[in-house]
């Protein structure tokens, strides 16, 4: 068994809300903007306590992104909040020109990412956001795994100068990382040491990877589970060190295969140390309404599918 215990299910968006409130108290330059989803993003506490530093833009995401770029002029550190779909695809050109190309210190914070948004269905379940964001020059892209790590990442990105995309989700999921651990951008965390296969995951699928680890170890397979919460810049050093031991890789993420974490890992391996890789990801399809666990199962993203991918890669 791995040593990670669920401290109780919590939603990663609440980790963001808690981190933002902490920043409100500790950093007077942090301001926040939201397009009519303050409750959904758990930004209420910040909005109530620091109302002069909170900007409600109404349902107008393009204007929110532009305003965030403008607020950096004068030295503020804007955090924008809306669903991942409206944080990326809807405002891609605004982010590209006014934030990324202009080098503005904006933190784009995106909730309800991926299939686990659940019942709202495919219109809201964006599975392309990481690809869109990681293609932008200079954009840092982060997808933390649980409440504690999302809170730590929210706090950490305020101290980093440059545009950041921070992705998190809606459902209550296991909270298992240490609340004391600070977040280092660009550093992957080795969660279990192993020698047969490297399992690379981020977001909600890190817990699924740890569940897969428990099954695999009981069946004689030693898996090294690594939490790659930063997709860009990618921690190639940790990747190559692990692969030099295992020589086999499985990636797992709540995103399209095209443009996601597995795609970044595959590229890094192709360039540095080609080895067999299997990808657990959504494969060129939209999602649908359903419960988060049902959706992860139907679209092949749960622990059972990670185990299948490990068995497949072990035969290659």
């Amino acid at each position: 068994m791995n040593s990670y215990l669920n401290q109780g299910n919590k939603d990663t968006r609440s980790g963001f809300g808690s981190g933002l409130l902490h920043l409100g108290k500790t950093n007077p330059n942090v301001v926040a903007l939201c397009s009519d989803l303050t409750g959904s993003l758990k930004m209420n506490a910040f909005a109530d306590e620091f109302s002069e530093r909170f900007f409600q833009t109404g349902i107008a995401e393009a204007n929110m992104i532009g305003m965030a770029a403008g607020l950096t002029i004068g030295g503020f550190i804007p955090f924008t909040g809306t669903f991942a779909n409206f944080s990326t695809g809807r405002v891609y050109d605004q982010i590209r020109q006014s934030i990324a190309y202009s080098g503005k210190n904006v933190k784009i914070c995106a909730s309800h990412a991926g299939l686990t948004l659940g019942e709202d269905g495919a219109t809201h379940q964006i599975l392309e956001d990481i690809g869109l964001m990681k293609m932008l020059p200079g954009m840092t892209v982060i997808s933390p795994c649980d409440y504690n790590q999302t809170k730590a990442a929210t706090i950490a990105i305020a101290d980093y100068v440059g545009p950041v995309y921070l992705r998190f989700g809606r459902p209550k999921v296991p909270n298992f990382t240490s609340p004391e651990k600070t977040f280092q951008i660009g550093e992957a965390d080795i969660l279990t040491e192993g020698s047969d296969v490297t399992i690379i995951a981020n977001g909600h699928l890190v817990w699924e990877a740890l569940e897969a680890y428990n099954y695999l170890i009981a069946n004689g397979i030693s898996a090294e589970v690594i939490n790659f919460s930063t997709i860009k810049p990618l921690d190639i050093k940790t990747l190559l060190k692990s692969v030099s031991k295992t020589g086999k890789v499985v990636t797992a993420e709540e995103h399209q295969r095209n443009g996601g974490l597995g795609d970044s890992i595959s590229q890094a391996l192709s360039l540095n140390n080609p080895c067999p890789i299997e990808m657990v990801a959504v494969n060129d399809s939209f999602g649908e309404s359903g419960e988060p666990a049902q959706l992860l199962k139907k679209y092949g993203l749960d622990a059972e599918n990670i185990i299948k991918a490990v068995n497949k890669v072990m035969k290659r």
Binding site: I65, G66, A69, G70, L71, I73, G74, S98
Partner: peptide
């Protein structure tokens, strides 16, 4: 179409400081 939004952000920044 993007400049007015950026300017509003800069104007809010001025008001805040």
């Amino acid at each position: 179409g993007q400049g007015m939004s950026v300017a509003i952000g800069a104007a809010e920044s001025k008001k805040l400081s």
